[in-house]
């Protein structure tokens, strides 16, 4: 038990570069595997949290652009959504990495200053960028569908109250669209969280072996030739965190629907709404 505490101390933040530098070699204990895989999970949480946060705002802008009558706004939004929803995330990672590597090493001169570019090829920035754009495209399609399915009566009521333009959008359209879109958006958030495991398998190098949960799991599986320990551990972690994610989104959903009768009932996670 004490030994395990030492292991946790050494390896719990290994994925961030804090603690022991060397990965354990040979004779992996269960404690080491659980600690290191849990440590890698920090990367998955980082990617998922920031991609969802930034992607949410971008998705709202894209959805609005896609409903716009102006083709200069609508067409680019449509193309963006088509490209990112129509191609595999795995390929998007590869393309982004290859494209970011092509940026000039010495930086881009801009108004006398040099913008450094090498940080863009690192996973924390480059992969996050891809995840943001990807989730923005999928979420934008969900929000777009919700905007199109707004009940006619609510818009007429808004007109009757003399609301128009931005006020109408902010007070009536947006809250209702969020309410409609939330179950599907929950699903998208789960998919995105699961997709973060792809990052270190797709071109982006794990610097100094600081990778995500699946990176360490496959490291252990490769070293021990035993897939029956490491993969169930990472699967268990993901089940727990997925349940947590569903709970968090359920809280938001209850708040969005708090004025409606029956809103206190729990939201059911509908797996049929595949993305």
């Amino acid at each position: 038990m004490n030994e395990c505490l030492v292991t946790i101390q050494e390896y719990a933040l290994r994925s961030l570069g804090i603690g022991e530098r060397m990965l354990p070699r040979g004779d992996f204990t269960l404690c080491q595997q659980i600690t290191l895989i849990g440590s890698g999970l920090l990367w998955n949480l980082y990617f998922a949290a920031f991609a969802l946060l930034i992607g949410f705002f971008l998705a709202n802008a894209l959805a609005l652009a896609k409903t716009s009558r102006n083709p200069w706004l609508r067409k680019p939004a449509e193309w963006f959504i088509f490209v990112f929803r129509g191609s595999p995330l795995f390929i998007q990672f590869f393309i982004a990495y290859e494209a970011l590597v092509q940026l000039p090493r010495t930086g881009i001169p801009l108004l006398g200053l040099t913008l450094p570019t090498d940080w863009m090829t690192k996973a924390w920035a480059g992969a996050l960028l891809v995840l943001v754009l990807n989730t923005a495209a999928y979420s934008a399609e969900i929000f777009y569908g919700a905007l199109r399915n707004l009940p006619k009566g609510e818009l007429e009521a808004a007109d009757a109250y003399g609301l128009s333009g931005w006020t109408r959008y902010r007070r009536i359209m947006w809250p209702t669209a969020m309410r409609l879109a939330w179950p599907a958006y929950t699903n998208e958030a789960i998919f995105l969280f699961h997709a973060t495991t792809l990052v270190f398998f797709s071109g982006f190098p794990a610097l100094r072996q600081q990778g995500d949960a699946l990176y360490y799991a496959s490291y252990f599986a490769d070293k021990t030739f035993n897939p029956f320990v490491a993969y169930p551990i990472v699967a268990g972690f993901f089940i727990l965190l997925t349940l947590l994610l569903i709970t968090l989104f359920g809280v938001v959903n209850r708040r969005l629907n708090r004025h409606l009768p029956g809103a206190t009932s729990k939201v059911r996670y509908r797996p049929n709404l595949l993305r």
Partner: peptide, 14 residues
């Protein structure tokens, strides 16, 4: 629903 598909892709073949 709870486990990323890529874990299965790594686990099942081996």
């Amino acid at each position: 629903r709870g486990i990323p598909d890529i874990i299965f892709f790594l686990f099942v073949p081996i």
